[in-house]
Design a protein around this nucleic acid. Structure first.
Lengths: 161, 161
DNA sequence: ATTTATGCAAATCGTTTGCAAACCT
DNA sequence: AGGTTTGCAAACGATTTGCATAAAT
């Protein structure tokens, strides 16, 4: 996922490797919480992958971690704005990824209905802008206060075809 | 049937009242299933509302219906392409609405994170086309076979503001 | 008569929570 | 010490399923 930056990382971006932990620590502190080892481990795992992960997947990668700790701390991280929870189906495991605020990478999801994995994709900024404006108008027309939007594709991924 | 209903329905809509049942019966039969009273009742309730409903909501409207029948038959109706299931959050009830093929009304959702209700909205056809093309390109680039897309807004609805 | 649908109650499964021990400051 | 986090096991809640009865073909 991470496109190799040609030279210097832009200083304005908060999201480069270990810098993420600083930003996360800040977000967590701002929420009156601590950045504990379990929370750090969760963030590290989410940082190391390019797809949103389920809790079972996270537990596989961190064999020592208790299931309840994963649930509890992902919930803390979510309300601190560190991670985003993605709900695909009612019966499947939810998935978590680092929030767009941290990664500075606005994207959407390719949801595979066969294997359940979720991949990221982006659309050109012009499309994104047009969609945003259209959604803004629709929201205004409905007196709806927008928190976020989701634009996902559901289908069969390359690996499952 | 032929006599005008007390409250005038809009004549321009392709899918009017009883016509839906014919179409549903067809879809259900095509799937090798029967159009039973419970299934008909579910379709009638979904026809009578403008928002996707949860199973508890449906059961309230049809006090005689068994919960398991609602779950089982909505699942049948879903795989016959009659209804669409909308999953909002992992812990909330899923919601059901008549499929767009039946209503001929392509739309998106305003999901209220406060009260959980879901309303429909539409965007102009030009936007819809542009989004479709952009999504098509993104899918092709990822060798992803698209089944459907979802473009929803999450936030606070007019009633909850 | 055979197949399919229904209703009830029990089972399933992702997720949450109570509680006691471990941790941090 | 005082408050928080952790791990375990039990609880929860939406959804599914086994089974016996009712309905449809």
């Amino acid at each position: 996922m991470a496109s190799p930056s040609p030279s210097q990382p832009r200083v304005t971006l908060p999201a480069v490797a270990s810098e993420i932990h600083t930003a996360v620590a800040d977000l967590v502190a701002r929420d009156g919480q601590r950045y504990t080892p379990v929370r750090r481990a969760l963030v590290e795992e989410l940082e190391d992958t390019d797809q949103p992960l389920t809790i079972p997947e996270l537990l596989t990668r961190r064999p020592g971690m208790a299931q309840s700790s994963a649930y509890r701390n992902l919930s803390v991280l979510e309300s601190a704005g560190v991670v985003t929870r993605i709900v695909v189906g009612a019966d499947e495991h939810a998935r978590y990824e680092l929030s767009e605020d941290l990664t500075e990478h606005h994207h959407h999801h390719l949801i595979c209905e066969q294997c359940g994995t979720v991949d990221d994709f982006t659309v050109p900024p012009e499309v994104e802008d047009l969609v945003d404006r259209a959604l803004g108008r629709a929201a205004r027309r409905n007196r709806f206060l927008v928190t976020s939007h989701r634009l996902d594709l559901v289908g069969i991924c390359a690996r499952c075809r």
